[in-house]
Amino acid sequence: MDFEPKILGIACNWCTYTGADLAGTTRLKYPQNVRTVRVMCSSRINPSFIIRAFQLGADGVLVGGCHPGDCHYGTGNLYARRKLAVTKKILEFAGMEPKRFRVEWISASEGKKYAEVVEEFTNDVKALGPQTKFKIRKD
């Protein structure tokens, strides 16, 4: 059987989560490997969430927020952007393949973009195979 990656999504309530809903309302079809946690704002995302997701066995992590400048809370995603850029560097430093972590700005009207990003990211992660570097084994 093909390797089906498990991807953790973290999406902000106002843009990306709504955009993902729009992909559904317009009945777009895309791979179902992403399981999404909804947070109010991408700025809520603590870098430790990302690391924890990999520890829990996520093969990839996809974060979605509003376009910079369009944050529902004004400036939240600008902080998120910096914080997540640093997180990505740390992950790379620790030996994680950079393609396993992706941050995308997807607005509430971009259902199509959401579906495309998920499809592309799923394929990227699939090509990398299972993530074992950070995964903590339960014994």
Binding site: A20, D21, L22, A23, G24, T25, R27, L28, K29, Y30, Q32, T36, A115
Partner: peptide, 15 residues
């Protein structure tokens, strides 16, 4: 959310 982000975005029952 098993509708907008699940049943509406795939046709595969198992998935």
């Amino acid at each position: 959310n098993v509708r907008e982000q699940d049943s509406w975005v795939t046709e595969d029952e198992d998935v």
